[in-house]
Design a protein around this nucleic acid. Structure first.
Lengths: 338, 338
DNA sequence: CGTCTTATTGTTATCGATATCAGTTGCGCT
DNA sequence: AGCGCAACTGATATCGATAACAATAAGACG
């Protein structure tokens, strides 16, 4: 809480006997300053406890050093993993991450994007391809690379790093069919909020239809984020209505875990009497008893690929505009045939 | 990607027929500008698609509008909840959160704090009371409020919002004792990295000792973050070495869940043959089968209280320097007496 | 009706760094 | 020795907003 006037580069320059410009160069990398001068300046800076003011540097250089990212939820491990991958990929280039969460609400996303834009980020990362009209306009007019993730929007704003949620849903439908199931349900959320979850649902149900099965065995009036509790409640409702169900896919592993335990509480054994599948390869699906079959969206990799795309866009621009990943099916005991 | 020269307040001022200063005032709140002028300026700004440049505003006003926060891990729901509470509490005052994760490493924390300081945050929030010497010095010399959370450091840097991890551990020891257990173990991590976990462990073991029980039944050579997998492995080792153990506390609910399922896989029934307790009130502990007894640290509340303390420190400074919370025991079936 | 407030708007001077361009110096080579 | 190039360092001019103070307009009041 020392209240002396803040030390600036000029102070360091004076102490080191050089110009402020040389201090500026010495404290950055990729600049040409002689080793002796640089060390002299470093010593002077240390002595004064000087810390560069990026608030001024950003203004002067017109480079904020920020990459902004919006995710639906902070406490969702999938999105956290993507944020972590992005942070790691950007770190060595000196970028910092401005992270905000939307609560699965496009209006909130718009507010967040607008707030971020005021900080002049050098790139913007959003989750999914569904935005308000105005948010799209803001992003498109921002003049910096924009990356939509976790999805493959039909009409992308700029770059994309994602996978087909519909394909992922279809894959799981096929898996359950292959395991011999014919009475298959789905538990998910209100489509308006979690469009990626809704895409998985559509892909899943369309695939069921393609296999000649009914597509009406669904409980999808839940409000994202779909938690374990909601998965459990939905499972109870589903089993009340369609007691002969033999397999259920849930929109995420968390709801799948809740749903599975609800089924077990009702006296059903998993997978003998009912098979359960989730999405997202959360830890809990691996360590649950039984382990829950899921789809790994490679959340961390989405982050690192996004970092790569951004860095490329900011330099040579040589990288591809769309990186298509594929969710990977992890078959576990919860859908095993015995 | 329009590449016209960026529009500034001067452009808006020209269009609205006022001075740039009036535009500056009109676009902020708490400033005196006539309603008609303000609306005229708003219209002009909208027409030009003008967005305030906080990069310049921060520099000019010497107020970054940032609060910086370091947490051990992005994907830990407890810390994410605290970050969420903090974000919410700061939002209406116009502050934004700069969030970074340390991976449970004080050296990384030091780097992160140093990087944050360059951004001139108006307050800094860190997790725990253990820091490198230099990091303490950086924080103490930053000239802004510093809040240490999730702990009650003996020698706080500035403000504190937390609870006693040792007390929490002791409380759980008492609970297990009260349920009739006399052969009680603990599963945790290497103390150097997760000092809060280590405090819980010490509190727990000291309490055992105070109750006349041995304190050597521990597996604590794991490296944070302690995951479900590590909890499972540790439980197997613990049961191999001390097969007569009847109760185990784990450093977190995640490891407790892994440990519990490992025990069940070995043919033990919970809680009939072995009781399990965790920490953190993660969703998984509530929805597991059986539900896992845990301690709720009120993670979200830590965030909102921290926001309150910061806002107070930045205005009247009237708030208390230390906010002491208490972890709340949630007894569930995993430690029930039958 | 004139003076005093108060509300509103304008003028000017920065904030602390970096971009840019202009020297200077040191060295290798012919 | 003289030339040219590369490496280093410095001088100057901003970047786009806000702080602080000045000026003016609009009411309030005796």
């Amino acid at each position: 809480m020392t209240e002396t006037r803040k030390t600036t580069m000029a102070d360091v320059a004076r102490l080191a006997g050089v110009s402020p410009m040389t201090v500026s160069r010495a404290l950055r990398s990729g600049t040409s300053v002689s080793t002796t001068t640089r060390e002299k300046i470093r010593a002077a800076a240390d002595q004064l406890g000087y810390v560069v003011d990026l608030t001024a540097a950003a203004f002067s250089s017109r480079r904020s050093g920020f990459v902004a990212m919006t995710i639906p939820s902070l406490s969702n491990a999938n999105f956290a993993d993507t944020a972590r991958g992005l942070t790691e990929g950007l770190h060595e280039s000196g970028f910092e991450l401005l992270l905000g969460y939307t609560d699965y609400d496009v209006a909130e996303e718009e507010r967040l994007v607008e707030a971020f834009l005021r900080r002049r980020p050098e790139a913007i990362v959003v989750t999914g391809g569904a935005h308000t009209e105005r948010c799209r306009a803001l992003l498109a007019g921002a003049g910096v690379p924009v990356v939509e993730t976790w999805d493959l929007p039909g009409n992308p704003i700029d770059r994309v790093v994602g996978f087909s949620n519909a394909d992922a849903g279809a894959r799981m439908a096929q898996h359950l069919f292959d395991q011999g199931h014919r009475c298959i349900g789905f538990i998910g959320g209100a489509s308006a909020r979690d469009t990626r979850g809704a895409d998985r649902q559509h892909g899943f149900l369309n695939a069921l239809e393609g296999l000649g099965l009914p597509r009406d065995r669904v409980v999808t009036d839940l409000d994202p984020p779909i938690t374990m509790r909601e998965g459990a409640e939905a499972m109870n409702r589903l089993l009340d209505r369609w007691p002969d169900t033999t397999a259920v896919m849930c929109v995420s592993d968390l709801s799948a875990f809740g749903a599975m335990n609800a089924a077990i509480r009702r006296g059903l054994s998993v997978p003998e009497q009912i098979a359960i599948a989730g999405f997202g390869a959360y830890d809990v699906s691996e360590h649950a008893l039984p382990g829950i079959t899921t789809l790994d969206a490679h959340a961390h990799r989405i982050g690192t690929e996004t970092a790569r795309i951004i860095l490329s866009a900011l330099t040579d621009g040589a990288a591809e505009a769309t990186v298509t990943l594929h969710a990977e099916l992890l078959a576990r005991r919860s859908t095993a045939v015995l």
